[in-house]
Design a protein around this nucleic acid. Structure first.
Length: 328
DNA sequence: TTCCAGGTTTCCT
DNA sequence: AGGAAACATGGA
């Protein structure tokens, strides 16, 4: 009993260079997991962000709590995530009996830690943003919001590719089709919870298979299959991207892949690799946000955005994420 | 019907 | 390296 409640502490060895924010710990309480959150954290703000997704297939919100299927290795589970006071998240396993596998429990804790970006200290960002004309309102309105990410590399790239040059509502429709055709479903208490398909799952399909399943263009289907094969074969990994050392080198690596341009590369580096200076500057949503905040008649030029973002050094991804929140 | 949407590739100088 | 055209489709 004492050992089961002992706080757990370990570090990611491969991320020490790029990611100084690597402290990670959790504790078991009964069959639940308690995950500490930083001071600059609001569960309600993050749920509010999640609730802006229309037709989302990978999580469910009910009464202010989050329900989601999570895969750890070959083990699948479904969890409920709720606030536990102001200092912790509480993760409950939606299954009987609750998991007693230490590997699964740690994997789930790590996933949630990564998903909510709990390792980042937002104090310096808020300090900078308070003086910034574009951000000062956003950081008050959305205080405690984290860059809710996409921990799985294949999922992040797919979402980038699916979302290219189409409206978000349609992008969510495509994602749902993709998930429900190629992903796995877990049933719990009469509800269905979907897991995003793995790169391995997709590597054996052809672009025509995807096209027949209702994905838009054969071109995008080619990109989705090609990327699945690259990741499944180990030719593209998160570790490789992190080891490039900086966002420019990682962007170069990603842009070599057909279907990934500068926007998708930065989107993936921001949402999945958590590079703080990833910056999808060509993003139409970002342009709309800036126009809205400054009350402009037209979208700002790239030069203007570079001027406005000059003070965001090493916080470009958080600045973008906060500005996106104005769109909903 | 037209215009736009959380772009990328290809083909040009 | 930098620019224009083709791509391709649901929503407003």
């Amino acid at each position: 009993m004492i050992s089961a409640n002992e706080p757990f502490e370990r570090r990611h060895p491969s991320q020490t260079n790029l990611d100084p924010k690597t402290s990670f710990s959790y504790e078991n309480e009964g069959s639940d997991i308690r995950l500490p959150v930083p001071a600059e954290f609001s569960f309600a703000e993050n749920v509010a962000h999640l609730s802006t997704a229309t037709n989302e297939s990978l999580y469910t919100l009910r009464e202010g709590r989050i329900y989601k299927a999570i895969a750890v290795g070959r083990e699948d589970t479904v969890v409920e995530i709720a606030a536990d006071g102001d200092t912790h998240l509480r993760i409950r396993f939606i299954e009987e009996p609750a998991s007693d596998s230490p590997t699964l429990r740690e994997g789930v804790a790590r996933y949630v830690h990564d998903w909510f970006d709990l390792g980042t200290d937002l104090k310096p960002f808020y300090e900078m943003a308070r003086q910034d004309p574009l951000l000062k309102q956003a950081v008050v309105s959305f205080y405690g919001l984290r860059n809710m990410g996409i921990p799985d590399l294949y999922e992040a790239i797919c979402w980038g590719i699916l979302g290219q040059q189409i409206n978000l509502a349609f992008a969510y429709t495509l994602k749902r089709r993709f998930v429900e055709k190629f992903g796995r479903v877990i049933e719990r208490a009469g509800e269905s919870y979907w897991l995003f398909p793995t790169a391995e799952d997709l590597a054996s399909f052809t672009p025509e298979d995807l096209s027949a399943a209702g994905m838009t263009t054969v071109k995008k289907c080619e990109y989705l299959v090609d990327t699945a094969r690259l990741i499944a074969s180990g030719e593209l990994t998160k570790e490789q991207l992190l080891q490039t050392g900086d966002v420019k080198q990682a962007e170069k690596m990603l842009v070599k892949i057909r279907g990934i341009g500068p926007w998708t590369a930065h989107y993936v580096l921001m949402r999945c690799l958590r590079m703080p200076d990833a910056f999808p500057i060509d993003d139409v949503g970002l342009h709309h946000s800036i126009r809205h905040v400054l009350g402009l008649d037209t979208k700002p030029s790239k030069e203007r955005i570079l001027e406005l973002s000059a003070g965001w050094t090493q916080w470009e991804s958080y600045a973008t994420f906060y500005l996106w929140r104005f769109l909903y």
